[in-house]
Write a protein that binds this DNA or RNA. Structure first.
Length: 403
DNA sequence: TCTGGGGTCCTAGGACCC
DNA sequence: TCTGGGGTCCTAGGACCC
């Protein structure tokens, strides 16, 4: 039985989409996308030329500027990314009925049951797929093929850029043996460092150890790590599951101490979240407030409702209470706030109309529906919640514009 | 040097219940 | 006199991913 999962990973996706949309960026070898050079933020993606200077995704913009001051720094647009991502997905759906997007620039395709169609290898399919993505969207991608998601993903990592790699069943351990532990999904910087202090840095070391020795060394993570080092990973792709959370957050362009300004921003963020909930026919039982102080300490406060909701007024009332309780402690130490955010979690599907709903709540629902209709026609900014107007202006220049 | 924004999953402790 | 115990819900924080 051959490898049956494909992982498609677009090469320098954000950079390439920006080049497509902004012709003046096309000739630039040193292009960094994520934010302007004077903005707070991190690198979203760097051109391969810029990567040679050590710039990579996740690096603070300011640090990238220092590494390569001559590079062009550009802030892309989320709607452009989303559109490009949908265009790619449309191509992928011609190849398999099961396409699961992992992010804007990554997707898994299930080819289980195609043994008769492609008895030996899926490489010819992958090659065709790569060519059609290129032809229809102008974007390059790399494709990994494996017996499970983890192997397919690691294969596409190894194939980058614009490459194809297939790891067939039986060859997983050999393929993994050459990798550092940090290459495994779920092993990030913190975990890798902890294990490195114990002398554990490479996958082959884990392959050589028996489970009880490994458990004595690293404790309860031993079983999961051992299995991954041997090449086991998820083999089923589940499409169409309910999302776990819907959230909006914004880092303010400068730290803010004025609670009224913060509440105004919170109100706008809440409106975004509530709008998305209704759009996706979801209701939330829990709302979480997030604050990041100027010393980068982050606190979250949450509240669970008796009845799930998708209404701005209910979500905002709870979020504001959480904010006031949390902010009281902040002001004591005269701390500025650099980030504020709100998340809706414990999501469920919105119920059909409830005949016994209290009239007051029904009125809020009618109001939300009217707002959604206006925004559907004229855009989100067509309607601004009154609570967002309270303080004279929105703080800083940073606003939660992205949908 | 200064650290985004959208997510996912896990852990640990306390409340509460039977 | 010692102070069960397991399950579930809730909160807060943390690691990780792209």
């Amino acid at each position: 039985m051959g490898a049956r999962i494909l992982h498609v990973d677009l090469d320098a996706f954000f950079v390439e989409v920006c080049r497509q949309r902004h012709p003046e960026l096309r000739g630039l070898e040193l292009l960094v996308v994520g934010g302007r050079r004077d903005q707070r933020g991190v690198v979203q993606s760097a051109s391969y030329g810029a990567r040679r200077f050590g710039i990579h995704a996740g690096m603070p913009i300011a640090q990238a500027v220092r590494l390569c001051p001559q590079a062009t720094f550009f802030q892309g647009s989320f709607p452009h990314y989303r559109e490009a991502s949908h265009a790619v997905r449309a191509v992928l759906e011609r190849f398999s009925p099961t396409v699961v997007s992992a992010s804007l620039d990554e997707a898994y395709l299930d080819f289980v049951g195609t043994e008769r169609l492609h008895p030996v290898s899926l490489l010819p399919v992958a090659e065709l797929l790569r060519d059609e993505v290129r032809r229809d969207t102008g974007l390059d991608c790399s494709v990994g093929i494996g017996p499970n998601r983890m192997i397919a993903k690691l294969a596409s990592d190894a194939a980058k850029p614009r490459g194809l790699m297939e790891v067939r069943a039986g060859w997983e351990a050999g393929f993994l043996a050459g990798l550092a532990l940090e290459a495994l999904p779920g092993v990030g910087p913190k975990t890798a460092e902890r294990w490195a202090e114990l002398g554990l840095t490479d996958v082959w070391q884990v392959q050589c150890m028996n489970e009880s020795a490994l458990e004595r060394l690293i404790g309860s993570d031993a079983l999961a790590l051992k299995r991954r080092a041997q090449g086991y990973g998820g083999t089923t792709l589940r499409a169409n599951r309910l999302p776990r959370s819907v959230s909006r957050e914004t880092t303010l362009s400068r730290d803010v101490r004025d609670p009224a300004a913060l509440e105004a921003t919170l109100s706008l963020l809440t409106a975004r979240v509530a709008g998305q909930l209704r759009d996706e026919r979801l209701v939330a039982r829990t709302v979480t407030l997030k604050l990041r102080h100027d010393d980068f300490r982050t606190v979250t406060r949450r509240h669970t409702f008796a009845i799930a909701t998708d209404l701005d007024a209910e979500l905002y009332a709870a979020a504001r209470e959480l904010f006031r309780a949390a902010f009281a402690g902040v002001r004591d130490r005269d701390r500025g706030v650099r980030l504020i955010g709100i998340a809706a979690t414990s999501l469920g599907m919105a119920a059909e109309a409830d005949l016994f709903e209290p009239p007051a709540r029904q009125r809020l629902r009618d109001l939300s529906a009217a707002v959604d209709q206006l925004r559907g026609k004229y855009g989100f900014a067509a309607v601004t919640p009154g609570s967002a107007l309270g303080s004279a202006r929105r703080p800083g220049g940073s606003s939660p514009e992205s949908p």
